[in-house]
Design a protein around this nucleic acid. Structure first.
Lengths: 123, 123
DNA sequence: GCGTTATTGCAAATGAATTTGCATTGTCCA
DNA sequence: TGGACAATGCAAATTCATTTGCAATAACGC
């Protein structure tokens, strides 16, 4: 990552604008509104670079699979809209991991996925 | 699914015995202790049949990917051991989905994944 | 502006999970 | 018990996400 390019810029801009976890296809589609010729291989290459640089993190979700989100966010969970399939970040956490864990299990972390409909899809 | 076979029997027995969500490889490995010649394609075919029949459900988890568990269990979540990678069912639920949801989002369901070490791996 | 070389676009290659074709085997009903 | 055909084992085929080779393009230090 030694030179600035429109493509990489467009990709980062997509994250700044949409501010939610994004799949490869969402990144590609949104990035093309800026660059047009943006190629999938370029997206993959830049995502890898941005993860290495620590600007993005890659996470795996049960459903869409691999998605990327901006690094450095505080503890949060994810909401997936069953209508538009988009993922959203839900800040805060109403979950006490110690309550649920049976004896013998030592819990070190947790992830919560909520499913439902997002504001845009609720009319 | 018109005939009983040792292979299908072995697969169902694996679920009854281990009583936790299982990946294809775990099913294959455990099933071979009974059948020996059990083939991966046979496992795939029988899992599909058992899901159709409603005896199993297929779930996707962030990490191992596709796993299968016996159908009809009540609301529960999953615990994955970071040491042995096995998945476990955690009954009950210390999570109130309405507390976390920002206005505009309508939550219909949730899944919780806990990570840590299982009793067997804690010595 | 020029040259070096990082980056891109494209298409082909790869890898992993799942499926399928087909000959063989095994179940079970008449 | 015999025959029909469901189910199996094996290997090859398919699918889907991701990576890679390579020629063309473009960023940026001189």
């Amino acid at each position: 990552m030694k030179r600035k390019t429109n493509q990489r810029n467009a990709i980062q801009e997509v994250f700044r604008k949409l501010d939610r976890p994004l799949s490869i296809d969402e990144i590609l589609k949104a990035g093309r509104e800026t660059v047009g010729t943006l190629n999938q291989a370029t997206v993959y290459r830049n995502l890898k670079l941005l993860v290495q640089k620590g600007w993005l993190i890659k996470i795996r979700t049960p459903e869409p699979g691999a998605v990327y989100e901006k690094a450095g966010k505080e503890h949060h969970h994810h909401f997936q809209c069953r209508s538009c399939d988009r993922l959203f970040e839900i800040s805060g956490c109403a979950f006490n991991e110690h309550i649920s864990t049976p004896p013998g299990f030592v819990t070190e972390g947790h992830e919560v996925y909520l499913y439902g409909t997002c504001p845009a899809c609720n009319e």
